[in-house]
Design a protein around this nucleic acid. Structure first.
Length: 646
RNA sequence: GCCGAUGUAGCUCAGUUGGUCAGAGCAGCUGAUUUGUAAUCAGCUGGCCGGGGGUUCGAAUCCCUCCAUCGGCUCCA
């Protein structure tokens, strides 16, 4: 007999060799029906795999991430089975579950498949699923496994097996389809009740551009048809938040073929929005001791040779700009740091002067591959809210905390709570590729970890993700479709101070090398605005939005009064418009709602007589009649809720 | 850069197998209306159907090519 501990800490005794499925059955019939896989001591297992020792287990249903993963992984096999039946001779790469569904990389030879073929494949998948094909696990020694796939002509599987350690290799078979697989899987295909293939994409074998490109087919599956319907509806909703779409509707930004790919044009409303962000950050930074600097859009090639960026990224830049002078070449600025290093070098610093913090909204240009461009999140010309802090090694932690404070202040001001934090450290297995002394690295890594802990941030610590020049802390957010984007970043840099031979005079009257911290709370203004749009669906915080209020006169008889209200509100620095069109009030309200203007101020006979305005709030409706002063207070209160400091 | 999809008025979209198929709604313009919390009415102007080549008596529709956008891959100082 063995002791099985359930998540609620109750302990049950079962005969040795009991399976997850049987345990579920002993608890309830419903659980037996809905269970998809079982975690045994933290590892996901097949439900029919015997448990031979005492263990802590957790039964996974659709509501558990691991349960869904099992379902989707099995669905990937199911899709492969369907594709093999429909397109004999197809070779298979890898087919894992992902955050929202699964994919399989396949090689169709001379054929190709597109979304037109999806329905056929989906039907076949459901047909197989309904047969409740069992998943059988088998194991083979490595050489036999290699033999099996060599004979089958599946070079991708051979490639995968070659990379595996010697020993036994597990396979899963369901129906006619057998796949190299670690598992785990569903007991059978029965629970897969609804499937939807979503799209296809080219994917290089093993992510290597020099290797063959396979066809990746993405899909998702559900235990209930209704869930699929809800998921598709959710996708439709997400599309409505797409920043490109909202950017066009609210006239924030545009692209023009005549100007060039990936070069955004900020329209008046968008520019106003962006300026509001910049003004806000400038105020915050001034308070935090940053000094403004400004550097040009181009820099001499030698500057980037000095910084090392030319070697690493020169080929991915725009072509150099040459001048009539022999051999002289300039590059569009791909980043601001070399310029800021030169600014630092302009004067001698004492240890008492540090830290020095140079801030600049610096526009930079990078030649992103055309397939990479994406709305405002991925462009070729963008502005970083950049700053470089030059400090002593003993100040790193303190400075980190101060930067985190700024990032958190900004996120709060924008009502931004859905973000994750990642700390990137050295790869302990290949320490040689990092520049800087071990001592400094240890200190900096420790400083970052302590700083995040002190700020109460829950950070994922990822070893091996650090840049060669220093560890970093990144703030990531997801867009409407769940894609991850990096926004704010704080990076320690030992490289550039070395390359530029930056110095300060220490208390010992000797020259010392400062540490440099790169930081950009927004990352880039373009990307940040894009994410912001998707985050709030275009309903920006009141302090940020381009137009805060619009006055809607009932008829042209009240235009004079409307203008008087406008002047008053302008005096209070409330960004206000008047809708003077010859339209009915209902129409004006509708249009103002569509434009997502926070406040609509309706003025007619009554208001003119009383010297008041009728306030309507975007999304919530009529707030009744108020005096101008009351309204101003309302606006100020709303603004101070998010940014009390300013 | 690579794979796949898409590309029709400023915007959102119809256009069946190539033959009155160049359309609709919104926006815009003109006029009427003087309007009270999500669309007043009428008339009118918008397009070389992404660009270029080809097939055909005839192409928005079929083929080739280029460009752009979207979804991925890869990359991301």
């Amino acid at each position: 007999m063995i002791q099985i501990t359930l998540p609620d800490k109750t302990v049950k005794t079962f005969p040795k060799g009991i399976t997850g499925q049987e345990i579920a059955g002993s608890i309830s019939e419903g659980l037996a029906r809905n269970v998809l896989s079982v975690n045994v001591n933290g590892e996901v297992w097949d439900l029919n795999r015997p448990i031979n020792n005492d263990a802590e287990i957790k039964l996974n249903t659709w509501d558990d991430k691991d349960g869904r993963a099992t379902m989707w992984h099995s669905s990937a096999h199911l899709m492969a089975a369907a594709i093999e039946e429909l397109y004999p001779g197809t070779k298979f790469g890898i087919g894992p579950d992902v955050e929202n569904g699964f994919y399989y990389d396949i090689d169709l030879g001379d054929r190709s498949i597109s979304s037109n073929d999806f329905e056929k494949i989906e039907q076949k998948m459901l047909e197989i699923a309904r047969r409740k094909e069992k998943f059988f696990r088998t194991e083979l020694p490595k050489h036999e496994a290699l033999d099996f796939y060599s004979k089958k002509g599946d070079e991708y599987k051979v490639d995968l097996i070659n990379d595996l350690e010697d020993g036994t290799i597990s396979f899963y078979r369901s129906g006619h389809f057998t796949d190299l697989c670690r598992g785990p899987h569903l007991v059978d295909t029965g629970p897969i009740k609804a499937v939807k293939l979503l799209n296809t994409a080219g994917a290089y074998w093993r992510g290597d551009e020099s290797r063959k490109q396979l066809t990746r087919v993405y899909g998702i599956s559900f235990p209930k048809q209704k869930m699929l319907k809800e998921y598709l509806e959710m996708l439709e909703e997400a599309k409505k938040r797409d920043h490109s779409k909202i950017g066009r509707e609210l006239e924030l930004f545009a692209f023009s073929n005549s100007v060039g790919q990936g070069l955004p044009l900020w329209l008046p409303k968008g520019a106003e929005l962006r300026e509001n962000l910049e003004i806000f950050l400038k105020k915050v930074q001034r308070k935090a001791g940053y000094l403004p600097v400004i550097s040009p859009h181009i820099g001499n090639k030698n500057l980037y040779i000095m910084s090392g960026h030319y070697d690493k990224y020169g080929k991915d830049s725009f072509k150099p700009i040459s001048t009539p002078s022999e051999g002289e070449e300039f590059f569009l600025k791909p980043m601001n740091c070399p310029h800021h290093c030169e600014i630092y070098k302009n004067k001698q610093y004492s240890y008492k002067d540090l830290p020095v913090r140079f801030a600049e909204f610096g526009t930079v240009y990078r030649y992103e591959q055309s397939g990479e461009l994406h709305g405002l999140t991925r462009v070729r010309g963008f502005t970083q809210d950049d700053a470089h802090i030059f400090c002593r090694p003993d100040q790193v932690k303190e400075e980190f905390i101060a930067v985190i404070d700024i990032v958190l202040l900004i996120f709060k001001a924008l009502d931004f709570s859905d973000y994750s934090v990642q700390i990137s450290l050295r790869d302990p297995r290949s320490m040689e590729k990092y520049i800087g002394t071990d001592e400094n690295w240890d200190k900096a890594e420790q400083a970052i970890i302590e700083a995040t802990e002190e700020k109460g941030l829950k950070a994922d610590i990822v070893k091996g993700e650090a840049a060669f020049y220093g560890p970093k802390l990144d703030f990531m957010v997801k867009d409407a479709l769940g894609r991850k984007w990096q926004l704010g970043t704080i990076q320690v840099d030992y490289n550039l101070p070395d390359r530029f031979e930056l110095e300060y005079i220490g208390s010992d009257n000797q020259k010392h090398r400062p540490v440099m911290i790169h930081r950009a709370p927004f990352g880039s203004m373009e990307r940040f605005v894009a994410v912001m749009i998707e985050h709030c669906a275009g309903n920006f915080p009141l302090w940020l939005t381009p137009d805060q209020a619009i006055i809607l006169p009932i008829s042209e008889k009240y235009e004079k009064y409307a203008k008087k209200v406008l002047t008053l509100l302008n005096n209070y620095e409330i960004r206000t418009l008047i809708d003077e069109r010859n339209e009915k009030t209902g129409k004006k309200i509708r249009d103002a709602e569509t434009r997502k203007i926070p406040f609509m101020l309706i003025v007619g006979e009554k208001e003119e007589a009383q010297g008041t305005i009728s306030v309507r709030k975007h999304g919530s409706g009529d707030l009744g009649t108020h005096t101008i002063e009351e309204f101003v207070q309302m606006v100020e209160q709303e603004i101070h809720r998010l940014i009390p400091e300013i």
